Simulated assay, not measured.
Amino acid sequence: MTDSCPVCVHRGIAPAAERRHGENVVHGYRCPACGHTWATARHLPAYTPTRRSAA
């Protein structure tokens, strides 16, 4: 998954690091444009094709 920088809104940034904890994944990002770093946590079952089509 890619993300957008919350500071400069640069788009399509790939994770620089990843940790998995059961059904959860934490991605660490670093913006190549401004250098800002941040992390996101996602519950993987929420991103399944079945879940998206039901919404």
Rank of each mutant, 00 (worst) to 15 (best):
R20Q: 15
P15Q: 00
V25N: 04
S4F: 08
H36W: 04
A39I: 03
R52G: 01
C31S: 07
P45C: 10
Y29N: 01
A39W: 07
E23V: 00
S53M: 11
E18G: 02
G12H: 12
T50N: 05
R51Q: 13
T37N: 07
I13Q: 05
T2S: 10
I13R: 05
H43W: 15
P45L: 10
V7G: 07
A17P: 02
G28Y: 08
P49N: 08
C5N: 04
E23K: 00
H21A: 13
W38C: 09
A14Y: 06
R52P: 00
A16V: 12
A16R: 14
R20C: 12
A39H: 07
Y29T: 02
G35S: 08
E18Q: 06
A33D: 14
T48C: 02
E23T: 00
C8G: 03
T40K: 10
E23S: 01
P32M: 02
C5W: 00
N24V: 12
R30P: 04
A55L: 13
P49K: 12
C34E: 11
A17K: 13
H21C: 08
M1Y: 07
I13T: 08
C8I: 01
S4M: 11
Y47D: 06
E18V: 05
H21R: 11
T48N: 01
G12C: 14
S4W: 09
Y47N: 03
P45Y: 11
C31P: 00
R42L: 13
H21K: 08
G28P: 09
A16D: 12
E18N: 01
A33K: 12
H10T: 15
R51K: 12
A17C: 01
H36I: 01
R51Y: 11
H36Q: 10
H27C: 10
A41D: 09
S4R: 13
A54L: 12
P32N: 05
